[in-house]
Computed example of a mutant assay.
Amino acid sequence: MLHEVTFQSFNQRDTVYGWIYVPAAKPKGIVQLVHGFGEHSRRYFHMIVKYLEAGYIVAADDHVGHGKTALENNTWGDWGEAGPHTMTEDEHRLKELVCEKYPKLPYFMFGHSMGSMIARDFIARYGNELSGVIICGTPGIFPIGDDVVAELDRLIADGKGAESDPMLTAKLMGWMCERCGEIKLGNEWICDDPYVQKDHAEDPFDAFTKPTANRALRDFIDMFRQINGKEWAEKVPATLPVYNIAGDQDPVGMYGQGVYQVSNWLAETGHDVRTKLYPGYRHEIHNYADLKEEVCAGVIEFLDGTIRKYL
């Protein structure tokens, strides 16, 4: 069964489009899937199917400025003016809608890349509403130039928040291809499979190659700043199990260093966190043909194990 749902965004401007995928069997839990920067939730269809086969309902939406939500609202790359918690609050609203339809089931969240940042903000605010969380391709302390922040602040102060400067995005993220050899598309950091790169670059629902509004890019930077350090980890319920996964050649996680930073913040504040790095793989570990089955199996093992152990 498939439900399409819509709801008003926290930004009070956009209508968010989401989907609830339901297995043709009695569900044992729910996984809310949170996609990353510049993409959309259907890029995770392989993973969605695996979770369905394992007996889980899957909920997902396309963030403001992304995918079908951006297409229907004509707001590509523009996240609105409600600030860096907008997507977190939208994910909370989606969870409420899902729980109205399917109450009293164990509820998990899976967030990849920017989605992991949203998930980390979510668990600091609403972690007591979840049974567990999976963060995939997450950053620790991320290199952000003060000059980029200053220029964005100047542009926004000058009334140019809804405009975009691709050079600032390049300054913020362009370094991530530094270990990728020959660069043809600029997205080689996501995966070393040329087909995945091409699919990502040509996807009509993928906004990664479309301009991101200056105000949205500033909110993106603030996302990093609100989920760092032990101060963030202390806001996460200590009873919430966390599974932190990534490729050790992922620049977003600073080639493993940032991934372990996040796990250490959680471990040092008394949390149950399990960490797994996949050697030799870049950012989208769930899209490698030779790895995606293993990644999904590991997540399902975490989901099933959490239900058995804690619930």
Rank of each mutant, 00 (worst) to 15 (best):
V148K: 05
K104I: 00
P106T: 04
I135C: 02
M114D: 01
I118Q: 10
S131V: 00
L94G: 08
L97K: 11
A119P: 02
A150E: 15
G111Q: 12
M114Y: 09
Y126H: 15
R120G: 03
S113Y: 10
L97S: 08
M114P: 01
E96C: 08
S113W: 11
Y102P: 00
C136L: 01
Y102M: 06
K101P: 00
I156T: 05
G127A: 04
D121R: 15
G137Q: 08
G132Y: 14
P106A: 03
L105A: 04
H112N: 09
I123F: 11
V133S: 03
G145A: 09
A119W: 07
T138N: 13
M109W: 00
I156C: 08
Y107L: 06
L155I: 03
L155T: 01
I144R: 07
G132D: 14
L152W: 12
V148N: 02
C136P: 00
I134P: 02
A119M: 05
L97Q: 13
R120I: 03
G140E: 05
V133Q: 04
R120A: 03
D153I: 00
P103C: 10
D121G: 04
E129S: 13
I118T: 13
M109G: 01
S131C: 06
A124H: 06
I144G: 01
S116I: 02
I134K: 09
R120H: 07
S131Q: 07
V98M: 09
P143Y: 13
R154G: 00
P106Y: 10
L97N: 08
K95T: 11
E151A: 03
M117F: 10
I135V: 15
I134M: 15
M114I: 07
L130G: 02
N128S: 15
K104W: 02
P143Q: 12
E96F: 08
G140H: 06
P103W: 11
M117V: 01
R125C: 05
D153S: 08
N128D: 15
G137E: 11
G111H: 12
K104Y: 04
K104N: 06
R93A: 14
K104P: 00
H112P: 00
L97V: 06
S116Y: 04
E129A: 11
A119N: 06
E96K: 14
P103G: 09
I135T: 09
V133H: 04
Y126Q: 08
R125S: 09
V98I: 14
Y107F: 14
R93E: 15
Y126W: 14
I141W: 12
R125H: 12
A157P: 00
F108R: 06
I134R: 10
G145K: 15
I135H: 03
D153V: 02
N128I: 03
I156W: 02
A150T: 13
E129F: 07
K95C: 08
D153N: 14
Y126T: 06
R125G: 00
E96S: 13
A124F: 04
Y102G: 01
G115Y: 08
P143W: 14
E100D: 14
S113C: 10
L130S: 04
D121N: 13
G132S: 12
A124R: 11
K95G: 06
I135Y: 07
G145S: 11
G127M: 06
R93Y: 13
